[in-house]
Computed example of a mutant assay.
Amino acid sequence: MKYGIELRHLHYFVCVAEELHFSRAADRLGMAQAPLSQQIRLLEERLGTKLFRRTTRRVELTPAGEIFLRHSQEMLGGLDRAVTHTRSISGEKSGTISVSGVHLALSHVLPPIIRDFRKSYPAVTVDVQVLGTAQQLQLLQANKIQIAFIRSTNPAGFFKTERVLQEGFVAVVPIDHPLAKKESLLIKDFAGEPIITYAPTVGASYYHAIMDALRRGGIHPVIVQEVSHTLAISTLVAAGVGIAIAPSWLAYNPSPYLVYKPLPEIPQEVELLVAWHAEEQSRVVLDFLDLARGSRQ
């Protein structure tokens, strides 16, 4: 490897960085402490900078060490994904696949998919992370994730998508609000009410669906705050800042301060898509996608 740095050096460094203790790191690696310390010093010499500050009481990362840790974890993670792809094409059923999704995907869509996937691939680790659509597409294009559960977005040549589900909306109101006594709400009920909604640059599909519904109902919304996440909406409504319209999945998150009311006037028009790289060939990933397709709602 260029600069004389080998993968084992990265493993050693990451282990010490995670433990911040040379003796514990050596035990974890199954080696003596002295050769581990020697390898870290050699790595520092080849990098030309100190990675750790060592005292008699503690070990801590230097600023350079913190940066190198992020790069090392990224390189080792990339190697793991490369091994998984290679093994899956050759028929081996082990390794790791990286799956990401918006909040709804992680809380309501992915659990049964992963459960069924593990029946066929018990030795494959599914690395899961919650991310927004834009960040997911960046990672998908860089081959840092294999499967993304995203909101509708402009098409691009590097990925393919299929719809997994469509969802509607609910009204979110404080439990002591007069509207909380009604069975369901109409758009006209929002007239004159302080409204919490999404910022137009984030949660774009939610924002446009909500604003379009209010306009169709002849409502000029009194927007008191814009937020970037659905859970922030529920927090602010519970605090009495205003009322809101939110995706229906929020109703599965009960709160002692809130009630959720159906909004039949707003169609179920917000999509959740599963996306994958257009040139994906891994049998493991393609089998995961087949399960995702079977979960359509």
Results as ranks from 00 to 15, higher is better:
residue 208 H to R: 12
residue 238 A to H: 07
residue 109 V to T: 09
residue 135 Q to A: 15
residue 22 F to C: 10
residue 283 R to K: 15
residue 253 N to I: 15
residue 148 A to F: 08
residue 278 A to G: 10
residue 297 Q to C: 10
residue 214 L to C: 02
residue 170 V to I: 08
residue 275 A to Q: 02
residue 290 D to F: 01
residue 240 G to W: 06
residue 117 F to G: 02
residue 67 I to K: 15
residue 159 F to N: 06
residue 128 V to F: 03
residue 154 N to T: 14
residue 282 S to G: 15
residue 23 S to G: 09
residue 140 L to Y: 00
residue 274 V to E: 01
residue 120 S to Q: 05
residue 88 S to R: 01
residue 199 A to I: 07
residue 56 T to A: 15
residue 181 K to N: 05
residue 82 A to P: 00
residue 286 L to G: 00
residue 81 R to D: 04
residue 120 S to V: 03
residue 234 S to G: 01
residue 147 I to G: 04
residue 287 D to Q: 14
residue 262 P to Y: 00
residue 71 H to D: 11
residue 129 Q to A: 14
residue 179 L to S: 09
residue 24 R to I: 12
residue 182 K to A: 11
residue 87 R to G: 08
residue 8 R to Q: 11
residue 267 P to W: 04
residue 154 N to G: 07
residue 248 S to N: 08
residue 2 K to Y: 07
residue 210 I to Y: 00
residue 83 V to I: 13
residue 102 V to N: 09
residue 43 L to G: 02
residue 281 Q to A: 14
residue 71 H to K: 14
residue 52 F to Q: 06
residue 238 A to G: 15
residue 152 S to T: 10
residue 24 R to P: 08
residue 208 H to A: 13
residue 282 S to I: 06
residue 63 P to C: 06
residue 51 L to I: 07
residue 160 K to Y: 02
residue 249 W to D: 06
residue 66 E to K: 15
residue 37 S to W: 12
residue 231 L to P: 04
residue 2 K to H: 12
residue 137 L to Y: 11
residue 144 K to M: 11
residue 87 R to L: 15
residue 14 V to L: 09
residue 164 V to L: 12
residue 234 S to M: 08
residue 60 E to R: 14
residue 133 T to F: 12
residue 168 G to Q: 00
residue 8 R to V: 07
residue 227 V to E: 04
residue 117 F to D: 02
residue 155 P to S: 00
residue 48 G to R: 08
residue 177 H to R: 02
residue 63 P to Q: 02
residue 151 R to Q: 11
residue 195 I to K: 03
residue 280 E to W: 05
residue 8 R to K: 07
residue 125 T to Q: 13
residue 109 V to G: 08
residue 89 I to G: 03
residue 291 L to E: 07
residue 296 R to H: 12
residue 87 R to H: 05
residue 215 R to K: 14
residue 169 F to Q: 01
residue 110 L to D: 00
residue 86 T to G: 10
residue 175 I to K: 13
residue 107 S to M: 11
residue 212 D to V: 01
residue 137 L to A: 03
residue 201 T to V: 13
residue 44 E to A: 08
residue 96 T to F: 07
residue 150 I to Y: 01
residue 264 P to E: 00
residue 225 Q to S: 12
residue 73 Q to S: 01
residue 80 D to A: 15
residue 53 R to S: 11
residue 44 E to V: 10
residue 25 A to K: 14
residue 286 L to F: 07
residue 199 A to K: 15
residue 132 G to M: 05
residue 233 I to S: 02
residue 124 V to C: 00
residue 95 G to C: 09
residue 202 V to A: 05
residue 15 C to Y: 09
residue 52 F to V: 12
residue 29 L to M: 15
residue 49 T to W: 04
